[in-house]
Design a protein around this nucleic acid. Structure first.
Ligand code: ZN
Ligand code: ZN
Ligand code: ZN
Ligand code: ZN
Lengths: 160, 160
DNA sequence: CGTTCACCGTTATGAAATAACATAACCGCT
DNA sequence: AGCGGTTATGTTATTTCATAACGGTGAACG
């Protein structure tokens, strides 16, 4: 992102570091192994970058940061990894930002976000709207297969 | 979109034609006049194209179709018009498609769509989720300024 | 009548995503 | 070990989507 706020630096400490990061990656490996999927090197690297970030990352942020010593990745490498991570529920794409976040919620869920337009924070929440949308859809014979819900506004730390 | 279905041609007749289209444009002019805004030629043309379409249109679809005799518009012309139409509530951007639709709902509202991944239809609906999201937001001190809600799935006409 | 401001046309470029094809690793099987 | 189907990656190039920047035009307002 770009519009980082200067006030309130402390409310951006969402990125995992050190042991917590390693634990999250190990957990992801385990979940993959349990479903016959492979957390290969590029997939693991992209997940690591997402988990360590303080805000949603754009695909080209990931491309630029991919290499250990500054060498960028090729776009398909990162896009394929993101596709995998989304498919397994390790990451979500935020459509209104063209950006990606690691999933912060256990188990199956509809991804929903409260996005701060000031500091870039994107908090994942679990609204009970699946039922609502499904009801509305059923009234018209529509079959829901996925829902994108993204609220924009200001987080508590950035409010005037 | 591209993956138009071959079955059920008749459920795509959403585009306005002739008198209905003219009436909608006249109504838009009136609404603009009432708020000191101007529905200039390019803005009116883009709105006309959106109103006449059977499905969400991409920006470059609009750019290609802009001229009366096949001459395309320049990208900024169309993007500026879209920005204006969105600002006044005449059109909505569908983030998950990078596409635009004319607004089909009177008055102020949260835009929400049931999108058919088969035929491309995007039905605008009015869920009662503003309250829910606002409640969840308030619990954390978040101030909502806008909500994007887009469901993907299959419309009644495209279901197996 | 001159200033102002919103709007427009135009050129160029930046940013995001994918197509297409070749190569390599993995896996279960003989 | 050797094979063959499958899955994943490497690489190049292109397409798609969106905006920056600048100068010109014309209505609006005193
Ligand atoms: Zn999640
Ligand atoms: Zn904030
Ligand atoms: Zn609407
Ligand atoms: Zn359909």
């Amino acid at each position: 992102m770009s519009t980082a706020c200067d006030h309130h630096e402390e409310h951006q400490h969402h990125g995992l570091r050190g042991a917590a990061l390693a634990a999250a990656l190990t957990s992801a490996e385990a979940r993959c192994a349990a479903t016959q999927e492979r957390l290969t090197a590029p997939r693991r690297r992209v997940l690591e970058l997402l988990l360590g970030a303080d805000a949603p990352l754009k695909a080209y942020d990931l491309i630029a940061a991919f290499g250990d010593r500054g060498e960028p990745a090729k776009p398909p490498t990162v896009y394929r990894a993101l596709e995998f991570l989304e498919r397994l529920g390790f990451a979500h794409r935020i459509e209104s930002l063209n950006a990606y976040v690691p999933c912060r919620i256990e188990g199956a869920h509809v991804a929903a976000f409260l996005i701060c337009d000031c500091c870039g924070e994107a908090a994942e929440v679990q609204p009970d709207l699946a039922a609502q949308v499904r009801a509305m859809a059923r009234a018209t014979g529509y079959e829901v297969r996925g829902v994108t819900l993204e609220a924009h506004g200001l987080c508590a730390g950035c409010r005037p």
